[in-house]
Amino acid sequence: MDPPPPQPPGQCRNWLELPRDVTESILLRLGAIEILTSAQKVCLLWRNICKDPSMWRAVDMRNPGDLCDMPYDLETMCRHAVDRSFGQLVDINVEHFGTDELLNYIADCSSRLRRLRLVSCDSISEEGLSEAAAKLPLLEELNISFCYPWTKEPLEVVGRCCPLLKSLKWNSNCYRRPYIECDEEALAIAENMPKLRQLQLFKNKLTNVGLLAILDGCPHLESLDLRRCLNVVLTGSLGRRCAEQIKHLRFPNDPMDDYELDAEFHENGSSDEDYPSGFSDIDYFSDDYGYYEFSGDSDYSYYGDIIDYGDFYYD
């Protein structure tokens, strides 16, 4: 096949002449926020493509977390993205703004969901995650990172309700004191998630006892990330077993160059008596994020099933 003739000097390619599948591929590389705030407003063709349910099988709501400076409501946008999928949603990334209500809305509308990422979602509770997990029997990948300290209960519920779970990230970003040990979460994983193949436990308090239980209870485990799990000592027979059983093993003191979230420890000088709940070694960041709510007809308007955000996002 001959290559297309060169464009005359000064003449630009008309993007509207691209094949539809090429345009779809380009738009899919944008996140949901970019599509709803800008791409769908470029032209009628792009708007029609952005309405196609196949464009919303994966919804990436990645954002920097500066919610108080955002001139739009991410939860409203996320619900609209879920609606556009018409039940085809299989992968969603919700960061910083997730709530119990939103998580259960996603679960109600997306029983086929296979991948769920929740990062820094302090408004999601143990009960909210447990309720949603009961509606997601096909879930295969779950990332819970930097949320409020939880007990073992949601892990047990996820294990029972999501029998196909193969990948779990259960990461902490807390003020850590030395010598605090707790294997409850590790035991919950070992007892309820036998099909796990990938496990990341960043800054977890498990000990060698919990690690051994995971190796016994998750025989298919291939990848294990124990970075900053300083109560684990991979020497002797346990170290040899990890080397034999795990193909991809990250040690507690391995470098964090490829870790996308905050990898630093933060010391906490408060006394144990200040934390009667049992999380005496943890004092999470508690930024008071403000949410800008849509209000008034000037903010956005509905045209059938299309939201026209106008120039609201360009402020």
Rank of each mutant, 00 (worst) to 15 (best):
D225V: 11
T37F: 11
Y300R: 02
L211A: 06
E244N: 09
I33Y: 03
R79T: 05
D2Q: 11
E267V: 09
D308S: 12
G239P: 01
G310N: 06
W46L: 07
P163Y: 09
M256R: 06
T37G: 15
C174F: 15
T99Y: 04
V82D: 00
R241F: 04
D122V: 06
N93L: 14
Y175Q: 10
K195N: 15
P3L: 12
D2V: 08
L211D: 03
E181G: 02
H220F: 12
P178L: 07
S167L: 12
A81E: 01
K195C: 15
L103Q: 02
P219W: 04
N204W: 08
S25P: 01
D108Q: 08
E126W: 07
I26D: 00
E244V: 07
N171K: 03
A58E: 07
Q40A: 10
E184L: 09
C43Y: 15
D274A: 15
R241Y: 04
L221E: 02
F146L: 09
Y179V: 03
G296S: 04
D262P: 00
G65N: 06
A58L: 07
D281Y: 14
L113K: 05
V42C: 13
T235E: 15
D258P: 01
D288R: 14
P3E: 12
A190G: 01
D21V: 12
I180P: 00
A58V: 04
S298T: 05
S298Q: 09
Y302V: 08
C229D: 03
S54A: 11
I189T: 05
N204Y: 03
E264L: 11
L103I: 01
N173Y: 12
S298G: 01
I180V: 10
D225G: 10
L139K: 02
C109F: 10
S111R: 14
G239M: 11
L199A: 12
L234R: 03
L187W: 05
G98C: 14
M55I: 01
L139A: 01
R57F: 00
D183N: 04
S286V: 04
S301N: 03
A39D: 01
F97D: 01
P194M: 09
S271T: 14
P9Y: 08
C174V: 14
V119E: 13
P4A: 13
W46N: 09
L230A: 05
D254I: 03
R112C: 07
R117T: 13
E191W: 08
S38G: 05
D287H: 12
S145G: 03
G290E: 11
R117P: 02
E244C: 08
V157D: 04
K169Y: 07
C109G: 05
F285C: 14
C78W: 04
L142P: 01
E126T: 06
V233D: 12
C43K: 14
L230M: 13
R115F: 08
